[in-house]
Design a protein around this nucleic acid. Structure first.
Lengths: 355, 355
DNA sequence: CAGGAATCTGTGAGCGGTCACACTAACTGT
DNA sequence: ACAGTTAGTGTGACCGCTCACAGATTCCTG
């Protein structure tokens, strides 16, 4: 005997913006069942694919759902299915990165998008310091989320190990440098990208091709430099190489200053990121050199600033939207206990005016 | 890598992946209770503040929690408390904005941070088109989240109305232009900011101060232009005013071209965003004008590009970290059914080299 | 036309917490 | 001494859903 809907306020306001003082109780699956004249089970079946439901019941339930404005209660469902339909996007980096690195600004919405298409939502977490890292780990471990998308460039990040130990489905963005880490990853082919740009600069006839490498404790920084060396071999002199401590604009300015100081007849520079390249551009302009006439500049990422810098940057395109999509794919496979492995996506040379 | 695939049956049914066989069952509150030799209720009390618990029981429970690796199940808790401890960050804008607008890159992590400090997590949602908007609304309405942080600049956004009708706690970033909208908001004082910059340019002795206004269907675009007019009054000639269709770089380039076409003796420009200013810079450089000697340029936002553009931009600082913090404050008040109202934060002139 | 398969439906038993309530025991004040 | 607090505890009733199972139809198919 299920009692009728008592103790609801007399307030029947529906669409109107009428001031409803107390929270109107949300209709439950039982309300819908009663309204449709069927059982809980049937409503549930309709809600989960509609298999084994007669056309009549289906229609009745759908109408009841519409009429009552019913929405399934996520907590109740998660409680029994043990699936939260949410994924954590963990940024295990100092805060500034989110501020400055344009790559996140495309990776993040792309992941949101790809997840949304699968009915999953993205929970953003930043793990800059020890305390935040613990909070994130605690959160993840208590099964708030079905999986983790991990963005951390620097090697030796403790989050990798912790995640790995806890058996939670996780995918990294970019190849983890730490060899102990077996979490699958998705990344662009940084090394080949480095080769592409270096090859291009050499083919354009440049004789003194310098490189502003990224931080060597990141896969991107390391691999791009390797690609450069793959092409130039021993011709890649020490004084043509500077490694920046980060991928940012200021670092690019400084590195470029160092380079022209050490080697004034440089006629080309490959910077390991667009931001570095943009900094290099500034230094070159201030030193009175014209780009690309005196010095050609190549970037990496094809981020938004590549097109808006002056001159627009010739760069290596990282297919970040694709990276996001595949990260989600791999994570989904992991969540479903299907086999999944790391993926490396091809890069592409984008020629603009700077080289 | 994971070992061979041991799934039973090739069933590919939707969501019908069986109960995960390998997962060892997470300890429940009953396990902890048994381990500590107390009842469920006592454990629950410990978990929720520890009031009315004897020191002995407290210690026993804490040890049991530690030993068993227990973590509370969020779904179970949410089911009864009706609180999800999550907040949606809804970006109701075309995708590109997240890509290009540097403001989001500071607002977003700042909100994440502020929420995390209150034990809330941030769920990122992008509502670019009709379909996505419905998905977001559906999500929010089904009480997945306790509240919504809404970022939408353009007036007439249907999300406002929908959110308002549904009685869900919500706070907007930036003043909604639509007068029907009563959702509280937090924003910088755009109008006063516009006055500050215009006043500064006038005080520096500039005679022909133009403005590149933002889109007039956004509060920022509209108010900054009003601020400019507050100072210049009728001296603000039509041919000194151009309104860009968005706050972006390209729009700035184009607008600047229009301005110098219509009025070659412009000696100062106030751009309604740093990105617009940056575009103006490019056009000015190409037209052979020096900044700030020939033309002074003022921006707005004090975003990351302000410091890295060439020359560095004199601009108006929006306290976005503060905006984020106060948005969370207001939202929290709303969630707790405490009174809360909109807040407008002061802006600040930041002098660099461009003006 | 019997009988097995396939379709459709309702029911009860949880999922893992919280919370109100009842109860005990020790501590008050008069 | 007795009632009245107050601290500390256990219990049962949910919260809203899914899922396995059993029962009831209908649909073949030999």
């Amino acid at each position: 005997m299920t009692g009728p809907d008592l103790r609801r306020g007399p307030n029947e306001a529906l669409g109107a913006a009428g001031p409803t003082p107390t929270h109107r109780r949300m209709p439950t699956i039982d309300d819908v069942a009663k309204l449709a004249g069927v059982s809980r089970g049937t409503v549930s079946r309709v809600l989960n694919g509609g298999h084994y439901v007669s056309p009549g019941a289906l229609a009745a339930v759908q109408r009841a759902v519409r009429d009552s404005g019913y929405m399934v209660n996520a907590s109740a469902r998660s409680l029994v299915t043990k699936r939260s339909n949410a994924v954590a996007f963990v940024l295990s980096e100092p805060q500034e990165r989110l501020f400055t690195d344009p790559n996140f600004s495309v990776l993040l919405p792309a992941c949101t998008q790809a997840l949304a298409e699968e009915g999953l939502s993205l929970i953003l977490m930043v793990a800059a310091d020890e305390e935040e890292r613990n909070r994130v780990l605690h959160y993840v471990h208590s099964r708030h989320v079905d999986g983790v998308l991990l963005v951390s460039t620097h090697g030796g990040d403790p989050v990798f190990g912790a995640l790995q130990r806890s058996q939670i489905p996780a995918v990294a963005c970019g190849r983890p440098l730490d060899h102990e880490v077996t979490i699958p990853f998705v990344s662009a082919d940084d090394r080949e990208g480095g080769r592409q740009m270096t090859r291009y600069l050499r083919e354009r006839g440049h004789q003194h091709i310098a490189i502003i490498g990224g931080p060597q404790d990141t896969a991107g920084g390391y691999d791009r430099l390797q690609g450069y060396r793959d092409i130039l071999g021993r011709r890649a002199l020490k004084r043509l190489t500077v490694c920046a401590p980060d991928f940012g604009y200021e670092a690019g300015k400084r590195a470029m200053r160092e380079l022209i100081g050490a080697n004034p007849d440089i006629d080309a520079v490959f910077a390991a990121s667009d931001l570095l390249a943009s900094g290099a551009l500034t230094t070159l302009r201030r030193s009175g050199r014209r780009v690309p006439d005196d010095v050609a500049v190549g970037g990496f990422d094809d981020s938004s600033i590549a097109a808006t810098s002056d001159p627009p940057l010739t760069t290596i395109r990282q297919p970040l939207e694709q990276v996001a999509k595949e990260m989600v794919e791999v994570l989904l496979a992991l969540i479903r206990h299907e086999p999944a492995s790391s993926r490396v996506l091809p890069t592409q040379l984008v020629v603009r005016s700077s080289a």
